[in-house]
Design a protein around this nucleic acid. Structure first.
Lengths: 341, 341
DNA sequence: CTGAAAGCGCTAACAA
DNA sequence: TTGTTAGCGCTTTCAG
């Protein structure tokens, strides 16, 4: 392995000068040129590990997400990677599986590895603990969810608003008994999307002059909490269909659960659009299924790019006050919510 | 940041002893206990960067793939990550986009970062150059494609055999004019799948007593080379449909192009299974589209696990001769190839 | 502008 | 078994 010393010797300068050439220090053009030539000749590339040790700052950022196989995070990851690449930073992929312990393990590694920073889609809003990173001054940006009480930059989507818009769309399409399958209790994204659903549906019921007293009970009876996974969506849908007065449409709070819900519907010989289905979170194949699927499109790639951008700024030393960026969603209407009958 | 020295001081031992405690060296239980206690009290975690510099071997492996957004690689990546995690190695994600230069850049970083090893799905069989890594003794495992002339362990699937099986299935289902959309010329996976198609179809035609002289020409006329991407699949399918005697079924050599092909079919008001569609490479939604999609299922997750396993063995010092592991595919028959009529 | 020298935190000989 | 010592390759004062 050729080191900075080899290059220095070959170019007839000191190691310090070589270092300066590679880090934008002031060196006379003539010597700089000599150094550069020697470097290419010897096939020299600075040893990042040594540099990291010396500067106490690595050239790697961590990306902690629940699961890269969820298309939402796949795309987010790609955004982070593309943005990081611009600044010559590498991305370490960490799948937490929504498991608090696994997540903590990765955060510890981020510290031990002296990573330059971390982008984290927290496993839990309440229990994810970023304080160790903060204490050591490691830049952190939260995406999708912001851990409670953590003072970090965050990039989010307006879940509640999107949930409301989605529900209103189902109402407007003529569905009357609209159910909601949301994520685990206590997970902010799940709660927010549910809140949007609640708001949208409550308004609709009141407009239909359902007595105020009955509204809450009616709304509640059509809500199921699941786990943001395929199986959970399946079980919840099956449960809803077993109701004495089953729903005629469902707002599913994430893409994975939508897959499960569709399976359950099929097993009951039900299909959109006579049974309305609206998925929160796009899936790559939404336009291909027959009928095509109406979705709330999340800007997952941009979420990644934006989060990485914020992180890179912090790494570069920006000291501005904390920011929260909220990216907008878009309701993409397709066939699965064309209306009953 | 607490260092090994702080712990040593607190425990009343030498830094070397602390190091040994954390690396399985021989230390009397009593002192080891004292060290461990001091370590937890001080919240000490060994600095991986310093260790990497000292040992010349990092605790990070590189994963170089064309694109994490391709579900095949998503799943492969997850497999690699899961396997690496077992050994406390982290995975750096590198998307080459099939671009030779981007790929080389990442391989250079692997060197500079002193990564413990690299799993690579080469951008090009002919042009991907692993020699720099080999020279420096960095363990490398190839997945999916094996760069020409590189002496590395490899984990592959039997593309040709799978292509043959797929084609035979289309024949058996009653389709008569079976086309093939494959990947770029010179890409081994594309060529192998095509070879399988050729073999399968040739046999079928001969069995149908088509004159030997005509067979090759017939087969060739239904072959299109595309780029393994959605757009390419779309264009190729459109082109095939414009033929005077258009095909009645198509074998598409990867999942992305299948999406494009399906779009093109839809635009021509054609649909499976009257027009047979068989995709090489599974897609998460294959069972959900209507009609559901017959696919050659690739063991992408296991490909990742196996490759990482091989790599970890090498990192651990295995010196056994080079291995090539071929994982088997499975034809998953669904509705899209139920037959014409 | 340039070079000498001092480590960053850790591990691996070598001695004891 | 334990401690001492000498770096891994780089950056960064501090003199010159």
């Amino acid at each position: 392995m050729t080191t900075i010393n080899d290059v220095a010797k070959a170019a007839g300068v000191s190691p310090a000068t070589v270092s300066r050439v590679f880090n934008g220090g002031r060196v006379t053009p003539e010597r700089a040129e000599r150094v550069r030539r020697a470097a290419t000749e010897l096939g020299f590339a600075p040893n990042r590990v040594a540099r990291s040790l010396r500067t106490q700052r690595g050239s790697v950022i961590g990306l902690v997400i629940p699961d890269i196989e969820n298309p939402f995070f796949t795309s987010l990851a790609r955004g982070v990677e593309d943005a990081a690449q611009q600044t010559n930073l590498s991305v370490v992929l960490c799948n937490s599986d929504g498991n608090i312990d696994k997540e903590r393990h990765y955060l510890d590694i981020a510290l031990a590895e002296q990573m330059a920073g971390v982008v984290v889609a927290a496993a839990s809003r309440a229990r994810t603990d970023l304080s160790a990173l903060m204490t050591r001054g490691m830049p952190v940006v939260a995406v999708d969810r912001r851990p409670r009480g953590a003072s970090v930059d965050a990039v989010l989507v307006d879940n509640q608003h999107a949930g409301e818009v989605a529900t209103e769309h189902l109402v407007a399409s003529g569905y009357r008994r609209i159910a909601c399958i949301t994520g685990p209790r206590g997970v902010s994204t799940a709660e927010d999307r549910l809140a949007g659903y609640r708001g949208g549906l409550r308004d609709a019921l009141l407009a239909r002059s359902v007595p105020v007293a009955e509204v809450e009970e009616l709304v509640d009876s059509y809500i199921r909490y699941a786990d943001f996974r395929v199986e959970g969506g399946h079980a919840a849908m099956a449960d809803l269909l077993a109701l004495p007065d089953p729903p005629d449409a469902v707002f599913v709070a994430n893409n994975l659960m939508t897959v499960g819900a569709l399976q359950a519907l099929r097993q009951s010989a039900l299909a959109p659009p006579s049974f309305g289905v609206l998925s929160f979170g796009d899936v790559p194949w939404a336009g291909l299924v027959r009928p095509s699927l109406t979705t709330v499109e999340l800007p997952s790639y941009d979420l990644g790019v934006t989060a990485a951008g914020l992180l890179l700024d912090r790494i570069a030393g920006r000291t501005a006050p904390l920011q929260t960026v909220v990216l907008r969603t878009a309701l993409r209407v397709r066939e699965s919510t064309a209306g009953p009958s």
